[in-house]
Design a protein around this nucleic acid. Structure first.
Length: 816
RNA sequence: GCGGAGAUGCCGGAGUGGUCAAACGGGCAAGAUUUAGGCUCUUGUGGCUUAGUGCCUACCUAGGUUCGAAUCCUAGUCUCCGCACCA
């Protein structure tokens, strides 16, 4: 049969959509299951193969859970605010809204072509005021609660994006979107969300999540909790005290070994420490480290310059010099560290370079060559001598606390989330600056603050030049006010979109609490690992913040996270246009069909491991589907034999487990195996169950064949088969193996002795019937005529007395 | 530097104490079908050996545990990924 998959796939996609069979049910008594993929940024490029992989994984899960009887919510939406649309607007002169809408329409078309079972009635797009007004509401609530605040800060500025970026968006000093662009540091008034408020909870709750280990570890490292001690050092400049400066250390046990201090070269108060004599030298140094590129900076040695000031060690009262250094992070701890060259490699290198004293305070190692960072007993530490250094950490901290010179402290690497962006295509921050009242939040009743449509692009932030939009009355005093022109980071949009899906049309509130509490949290969330420290962390923060504001009751947004692997090009490199190795999913769908594409994507490897595209796998998958169609053309419906029933039920059991645990590649192997064992004649029930097992992977072809064998319902809504343990008979498999072995033996002998016409098979009397049933198969696979005798058959033909060797499941053979 | 993942046949990739010369797919070879090709089907695909057998060498390298290891332990090599001067 010529199977026109294009036509058939379109037919079923249309049917599914018209009958709305994938809509999540309202007020259902069923248990819910919420499957979600990370929503895409709708670029003009359309769907790429990574999307196809992502959505196929999710669709299989959604279809599987639906068939298992869950009330499934499986929605799709678009993360449609953001720089690329705005940049496209500048480049080609289209309004971002137009560009975005067009891209979304294209995405939807392509996603439908993949046969994804989304509930399209739940769709959302974050650039709609109906959506982003709730960003604004949440912002106001955060502000009220002190979770949003404004401060002047050193921020990361990307000159290409023309905006500020969050720490998470800066990699190796480069912009996430412009990998060749250096981030500049600027001091600006910006809006922040207090993610640090939840640092501890964000860290603690990671362990309970069903997430991939590596993502958990990445988040933990990002939050970066460390226990240590804050110690006060008095700073002396020109014999005058500048008061006490705190420093953070995890090694209070080495305090007696402090021989100098280092303050970050980027420290905002650095110049306060610098004496007149040293001013020129320090400024030269600052200029020097500014002039080197980020890359050089990375490879650069530890360098510094004496500030002219000194610090007093609170325990020894020693006076040690304070240096400014390029290796101290300005906004971690207090931006200043105590340096113990004997026991810290960085300090060691610095001390060697500037000829500073090195004082050993822990016994062990050879500190002539490098710092000793191991364990040991304290020396040169006055009354703490002889104590093991781990113990000394406690004792010294306790002592400092008693003297009021320091305290235990927990320090996190996590910073507050900078959400201000100096760009147009984002959610306006609902704030008005009044000449009299200062910062005034836009009253909730005035929400949404809509983005003005008519703006001029290309000259910085288009909102800044839109006088009509900017100038408003102060909501408090009615006086002259100006709108905040910054918009929110798009990660705000994606921090709660999954809460909106179930109640996406609500115009009174972000979501109905009852509806929300039925569907959320998300049961399975599927996406790439690149969001480990951004989106996934922000979403967790948002969830906790909304919980504390009373919007929701759960603590975590995503119970289970599944990371798909990277699909590389056939040459093993990343797919990229410049390399010309891109596989376009739409091309495959056109030529081989969506089912073949889906099957291929799931066949490469376990969906969470990295792989490369391989055309041969596509051809193999395509061929397999053709064989299935051929088979259904020819199969005779009747009674199923016990062997097939056994194999089927065993397969059901295994495949169900494998799909549940995302081992889709293994499930496909089992499905192929099951298919290969299907006889020419079998029952409708067997065929139906086979189709059901294949259905999540290849929904169209199975829907088609389901109807072809006489069903009127949708296989998509059918019940997942349950294995009947009673029908599984392992001994049948042994027989199967024995038969297989027999055929191989015959062929082997055939090869050894050359051409023969006939094979005589001698079996135990109780096995004779079974082998008689397989005569056709043996004939087919050996190309010989066959005679089967039981060993006790009187008139058997057995010239070499081969029947003497016969054992159970081990027939004797003679060829002639 | 720190942290994580991995290394299996010609290739992709299963397998995680015995039933393993190792699933499934691909490639390749031979045969059947065919006017031919494609499709489809059958067989073979570490080495030697044998009327269906037996043996040897194999799952990165080197050791070890065990009656027995691709599978567990130790050390090392290589590859990929994440963080990167966080005191």
């Amino acid at each position: 049969m010529a199977y026109n998959f294009n036509q058939i796939e379109k037919k079923w996609q249309k049917e599914w959509e018209e009958k709305k069979i994938f809509c999540a049910k309202k007020n259902s008594k069923k248990k819910k299951f919420y499957v979600l993929e990370m929503f895409p940024y709708p670029s003009g490029e359309g769907l790429h193969i990574g999307h196809a992989l992502n959505y196929t994984i999710g669709d299989i899960r959604a279809r599987f859970k639906r068939m298992l009887g869950f009330n499934v919510l499986y929605p799709m939406g678009y993360d449609s605010f953001g720089l690329p649309a705005e940049n496209a607007a500048i480049r080609v002169g289209v309004h971002p809204e137009k560009y975005t809408k067009k891209s979304i329409a294209n995405f939807i078309k392509q996603q439908k072509a993949l046969g994804l079972s989304y509930d399209w009635s739940k769709m959302l797009s974050t650039c709609e005021p109906e959506y982003y007004r709730w960003n604004q509401l949440f912002f106001l609530k955060f502000l009220e609660k002190g979770l949003a605040y404004r401060k002047k800060a050193a921020v990361n500025w990307c000159p290409k994006c023309n905006t500020v970026l969050a720490n998470e968006q800066v990699h190796n000093g480069k912009c996430e979107y412009h990998k060749d662009t250096e981030i500049e540091i600027r001091y600006l008034e910006q809006w922040f969300l207090k993610t640090t408020e939840y640092a501890e909870e964000l860290l603690e709750m990671i362990d309970d999540l069903n997430w991939p280990q590596r993502i958990k570890i990445m988040q933990k490292n990002w939050i970066g909790k460390s226990h240590g001690t804050e110690i006060e050092f008095e700073i002396i400049k020109n014999d005058e005290s500048l008061g006490k400066w705190p420093i953070f250390t995890t090694r209070p046990d080495t305090i007696f070994g402090v021989t100098f201090m280092v303050v970050s070269a980027q420290h905002p108060q650095l110049m306060e420490l610098v004496t007149d004599e040293q001013e020129k030298e320090v400024k030269d140094f600052l200029r020097k480290i500014k002039s080197v590129s980020e890359k050089e900076l990375e490879e650069m040695e530890k360098e510094g310059v004496f500030t002219g000031s000194y610090a007093i060690n609170p325990l020894t009262n020693e006076k040690v010099p304070v240096y400014a250094g390029n290796f101290v992070v300005a906004d971690y701890g207090s931006g200043m560290v105590m340096a113990v060259p004997a026991h810290d490699q960085r300090d060691f290198e610095f001390a060697k370079k500037y000829n500073l004293k090195i004082k050993q305070v822990i016994a062990g190692g050879d500190i002539k060559q490098k710092a000793y960072t191991g364990q040991g007993k304290l020396i040169n530490s006055e009354k703490f001598n002889g104590i093991n250094n781990e113990k000394a950490k406690q004792k010294i901290t306790k002592y400092l606390e008693e003297k009021g010179l320091g305290k235990r402290k927990v320090q996190y690497k996590l910073r507050d989330w900078l959400i201000s962006r100096q760009r147009y295509w984002g959610t306006p921050i609902p704030i008005i600056y009044c000449e009299k009242c200062g910062i005034v939040p836009v009253p909730e009743k005035d929400l949404p603050v809509k983005l003005p449509k008519k703006v001029e692009f290309g000259k910085g932030n288009p909102l800044e030049t839109n006088e009509k939009w900017i100038n408003v009355k102060c909501p408090k005093c009615g006086g002259k006010g100006r709108r905040e022109t910054d918009t929110m980071d798009t990660f705000v949009d994606s921090s709660w979109y999954y809460m909106r899906y179930p109640d996406n049309k609500n115009s009174k509130e972000p979501f109905d609490k009852k509806i929300g509490s039925y569907w959320l949290p998300v049961d399975t969330y599927i996406g790439g690992a690149e969001h480990a420290t951004m989106h996934l962390l922000y979403a967790r923060f948002w969830t906790k913040a909304l919980r504390d504001l009373g919007f929701i009751k759960y603590d975590e947004p995503f119970i289970q996270l599944f990371n798909q692997g990277m699909l590389h090009a056939a040459d093993g490199r990343k797919m990229s246009k410049s390399l010309g190795n891109v596989i376009n999913p739409l091309d495959i769908i056109d030529k081989q069909g969506a089912d073949a594409l889906r099957l291929t994507l799931m066949s490469f490897a376990s969906p969470d491991s990295d792989t490369s595209w391989d055309d041969k796998v596509l051809q193999g998958s395509s061929k397999f589907l053709k064989r299935i169609i051929n088979y259904f053309e020819k199969v005779k419906i009747g009674k199923a034999d016990v062997k097939t029933e056994s194999k089927l039920n065993k397969s059901i059991k295994e495949i169900t487990n494998q799909i549940e645990s995302f081992k889709y590649n293994l499930a496909i192997i089992k499905i192929r195996d099951l298919f290969n064992s299907l006889p020419e004649k079998t029952s409708k029930d067997v065929l139906e169950k086979f189709l059901k097992l294949l259905h999540p992977f290849c929904p169209h072809i199975t829907e088609e064949l389901w109807h072809k064998i006489g069903n009127k319902t949708f296989i998509s809504l059918e019940k997942w088969p349950v294995a009947d343990e009673k029908k599984i008979d392992e001994s049948l498999e042994k027989q199967e193996e024995a038969l297989d072995k027999l055929i191989r033996d015959i062929n082997n002998v055939l090869k050894l002795v050359g051409e023969k016409k006939k094979v005589f098979v001698y079996v135990l009397p109780n096995e004779k019937e079974m082998y008689l049933n397989e005569v056709d198969l043996i004939k087919k696979r050996t190309g010989l005529d066959i005679m089967i005798y039981a060993v006790n058959d009187k008139n058997k033909y057995d010239p070499e007395n081969k029947s003497k060797k016969v054992k159970p499941n081990r027939p004797g053979i003679y060829l002639e």
